[in-house]
Design a protein around this nucleic acid. Structure first.
Length: 572
RNA sequence: GCACCCGUAGCUCAGCUGGAUAGAGCGUUGGCCUCCGGAGCCAAAGGUCAGAGGUUCGAAUCCUCUCGGGUGCGCCA
């Protein structure tokens, strides 16, 4: 349903050139051809398989590849073509390719900036419940959603970042009841509220019934209950805001469940008129096809439910923003809820129900068990951030003792938080993550700090060069395979970001950055043993060309990190 | 019981919109700076891609089944 047509608008001119070279001799559109990377660099730079072409012609793929390679005429960007079995492998004209790639990367035009022009994406992420601190497991929705928001924005989409606060419902009725019973008068701190809520659930005979009774009072607009609820919401938001500030997340829409609780009457009325809303075991429900459980929209006490408010919110998002895609970045435990919700929207006749998508993700486990405030087992997000930051500060003090204390503290925060973000984004969404503090704060190997460090080294070289980066230089001076390997990675960036957004999988960006950083490090390290391979060599023309390549890598690493929501310090 | 997710090296994971010899990191072993920052680089060792069928010229990748682990299944969110 989300498959985009064969629109290769995100391809680099290099990829397009390869596709066109084959298309010209194959009688197919270039846009239908997939341009790949050969498994080993010595085979070529770009590859196009001839399987489908051969099939259409009822010919042997290897023979077709041979013919296409033989007919190839060099272009500005492509130097040669060779057949390798069923593949046509192209070699780039390196000087021209360097020029385009480095120019695009340093000029900020490597990514297709207008791919999403005129399209809006709403992303519901974070969305914590109030009266509770942000626990570590909240980090997944928050970081995945933010990375998606950043990525869509980078491609020119209009993004509406939504924090659908869990600030309404029976749970919050319980918090009110508990506070009134045991805490009245005490300043309603978030910790106190959480504590009272837990006690309430443990000690009261019918906590949910009492909770619904208080919710009823809220839904009836009783001033005292509402004023108290508002205080709870305010202290909660103050806490959340602190974390969002640390993560540099800014929401566009903060309407939580409470906002939509007021809009459910008309929806329920309409459902009733259409005969969809029926009574079942005292509650008001809508039966859904192929689901054994109906969706419950009104409790037996007449209070609204999560689903009711979500229906109102979905309609609001459509009417207000007209999104091309409406994304819900919420843990997998809620898959059933979203399946029901989307089915109900479709049943109500909303064609746009198909634009709604649950972006689910696996659990964060602590000690093998699901982390979450219901089961206890809570690790607070800010505590983890603090530990990571402290750990990094120590490493910096050892490795880079000359860094001024204020810079060191700032970098420690950027790298510590970055390690957390990267660690949470680096694997596929659907996989569960085992929270291991030691591993989380580790700076070795495939990690966020490794990418940031590579970026800092680029910055360091550019600082040391002390001359402006020029891109109108003789790129023929970049003669080593190591330099070419770095540039080729740059060419992969656009497709990676498009894939990350199409599939809502930010982890592909993480892996891309590790590869780009790794390729850069290999090139860079070669200079340790051989001074002629260093960027800062005496030959001015070679030096300028290499500096341009470093600048291109730096710009791409910085941009990639920003897509993930990570800072890119210039020194660390 | 029904539904969904996961199963790739000792460990943590890429690769899964089908393509060429399945890749990283950690850990283990052995190397590399009178250095443009060693938070780095190179090399060795390590895999019946859970198992069995099927589709295909071609399957870790798609389909079916089995096994193992996890989650969900009306008035919580």
């Amino acid at each position: 349903m989300l498959a985009c047509a064969a629109m290769p608008s995100h391809l680099t001119p290099l990829h397009s050139a390869a596709a066109e070279a084959v298309a010209a001799h194959a009688g197919v559109a270039a846009s239908e051809l997939k341009v790949e990377t050969p498994p080993r660099p010595e085979m070529g730079d770009f590859a196009v398989g001839c399987f489908t072409i051969a099939k259409a012609k009822k010919a042997n793929p290897a023979q077709v590849a041979k013919e296409i390679a033989a007919a190839f005429q060099p272009t500005e960007l492509l130097a040669s073509a060779t057949a390798a079995g069923p593949f046509v492998n192209f070699r780039a004209n390196r000087a021209a390719a360097f020029k385009w790639l480095i120019g695009a990367a340093t000029g900020g035009s490597l990514l297709p900036r207008t791919l999403g022009a005129g399209k809006t994406i709403t992303i519901d992420y974070g969305s914590p419940n109030i009266s509770k601190r942000l626990a570590y497991h909240h980090i997944r929705s928050t970081t995945i959603g933010h990375a998606l928001a950043q990525s869509f924005r980078a491609l020119g989409y209009r993004v509406v970042a939504i924090n659908f606060l869990g600030d309404w419902g029976t749970t919050h009725g319980m918090v009110l009841a508990a506070y009134e019973r045991w805490g009245a008068g005490a300043p309603p701190t978030i910790d106190l509220l959480d504590q009272l809520y837990k006690r309430f659930r443990a000690e009261v005979a019918d906590p949910e019934g009492e909770g619904r009774a208080w919710l009823k009072r809220l839904e009836n607009g009783e001033p005292e209950a509402t004023a108290l609820w508002q205080r709870f919401r305010d202290v909660s938001w103050a806490e959340f805001e602190e974390v969002y500030r640390i993560l540099d997340i800014h929401y566009d829409d903060l309407n939580g469940e409470a906002y939509f609780a007021k809009q459910t009457d008309a929806i329920l009325e309409k459902l009733k008129d259409e005969g969809l809303l029926v009574e079942s075991e005292g509650a008001q429900v809508v039966e859904l096809e192929e689901e054994k459980a109906p969706i419950v929209l009104l409790s037996k006490d007449g209070t609204t439910l999560y689903a009711t408010r979500d229906v109102a919110a979905a309609i609001y998002r459509e009417e207000r923003y007209h999104p091309t895609r409406s994304l819900y970045v919420v843990d997998r435990g809620q898959s059933f809820h979203f399946r029901q919700l989307f089915k109900l929207l479709a049943k109500m006749g909303f064609g746009w129900a198909s634009t709604c998508q649950h972006i689910s993700f696996g659990q964060v486990k602590v000690g093998g068990k699901k982390a979450g405030s219901r089961l206890g087992n809570v690790v607070l997000m800010r505590d983890v951030f603090k530990i990571a930051e402290d750990e990094v500060r120590e490493v910096i003090a050892q490795v880079n003792p000359s860094l001024p204390a204020d810079v060191r503290d700032q970098v420690a925060r950027q790298v510590g938080i970055g390690a957390m973000i990267f660690g949470n984004l680096a694997s596929q969404r659907e996989k569960d993550i085992e929270f291991d503090l030691d591993k989380a704060v580790s700076l070795d190997g495939d990690s966020g700090p490794y990418v940031q460090y590579s970026h800092a080294r680029c910055a360091s070289i550019l600082r040391k060069a002390n001359e402006p980066v020029a891109t109108d230089v003789d790129f023929g001076k970049l003669a080593s395979d190591a330099e070419w390997a770095v540039a080729k990675r740059l060419a992969d960036f656009p497709e990676i970001v498009v894939r990350a957004t199409d599939n809502c999988e930010p982890h592909v960006i993480c892996h891309y950055l590790l590869e780009l950083a790794g390729e850069f490090s290999r090139w860079y390290t070669a200079g340790n043993g051989d001074a002629t391979l260093r960027v800062l060599v005496d030959d001015a023309e070679v030096r300028r060309a290499r500096l341009a390549l470093v600048a291109a890598v730096q710009a791409t690493l910085r941009e990639g990190l920003s897509l993930l929501g990570m800072a890119a310090p210039d020194q660390m």
